[in-house]
Design a protein around this nucleic acid. Structure first.
Lengths: 144, 144
DNA sequence: AAACTATGCAGAATGACATTCGGTAGATCA
DNA sequence: TGATCTACCGAATGTCATTCTGCATAGTTT
């Protein structure tokens, strides 16, 4: 995991569709060596997968909200219950007054309300506190 | 934007490295037609880009936190100030008591503290409220 | 209803690129 | 010094992306 690897990660996070020849030229390696580097990054699990990035608004997910979920029970095992709600994009167990923090994308605020209802129906959930996003400054990959 | 397009988006969000032949077989189209579909999805901006997904822990970003940022001024124009902090992965203007919600990834909690200090140094920021993530249930692409 | 137009698809042809392999240089250890 | 290992380059090969032609279907105009 040296500088070249980090550079490759940055480039591949920006555009994973470019050729190994171009990638290699950018970091000063041959296409073959670059390919081998990237292969090992995958093997080690540093690169999890390659995926397309979709515009949420274009697929009817223009409303973004974060929801703090309070609970009266231990929720460390109920990840599946949250995963069952497709509008939830992320779910994290958090330290602090709430128990779970989820990121929700819906088409409308009415649908957001419906998601809140479904979250409320999860066993042990005692309350929700939703925060609607007005504008997203940026969402970007992590810099190695 | 029909069912086939949506199916293609799901498949490409899971694995953008597969061939158009395989992709086409999955949705019942030829490789050529599939290629044309995907090309148009890119053209329309539905697909923004294709990128690799990196394991945060593998690149020294094992600590995840969400930070509510309070402010005394209008912060709608200070996106650049947040973008200048590389540990910030997302920044959103929110409705509610706070003004901005940011997602931060650092190697240690000490570094998180340092990020909070830098956020505090942004003009107009009057306070921060950090929530550390103990466990991430899941982070997944949005389902079309 | 007939002709026209546009759109989407299949199948084939071409060229680019991923992937593999042999050989070499440098680094580490004995 | 010799042995071993790793990372690299450059070339060879096969796969696949990309483009093109022709056809069918659906929608539109006359």
């Amino acid at each position: 995991m040296d500088d070249v690897d980090r550079q490759l990660l940055v480039l591949l996070q920006q555009d994973a569709a470019q050729s190994y020849a171009a990638l290699g030229q950018a970091v000063g390696l041959s296409a073959g060596a670059t390919h081998e580097r990237v292969r090992k990054l995958r093997e080690r699990g540093v690169i999890r997968r390659t995926a397309v990035e979709v515009d949420p608004a274009a697929i009817g997910r223009g409303v973004l909200a974060f929801v703090m979920v309070d609970s009266t029970k231990w929720v460390g095992d109920s990840g599946d219950r949250f995963a069952a709600i497709p509008e939830i994009q992320e779910a994290h167990v958090i330290a602090g007054s709430a128990a779970v923090l989820v990121k929700v994308r819906t088409a409308t605020t009415e649908q957001l309300q419906d998601v809140l209802r479904r979250i409320y129906a999860i066993d042990g959930v005692s309350g929700t506190q939703a925060t609607v996003v007005l504008e997203t400054f940026f969402e970007r990959p992590v810099t190695p």
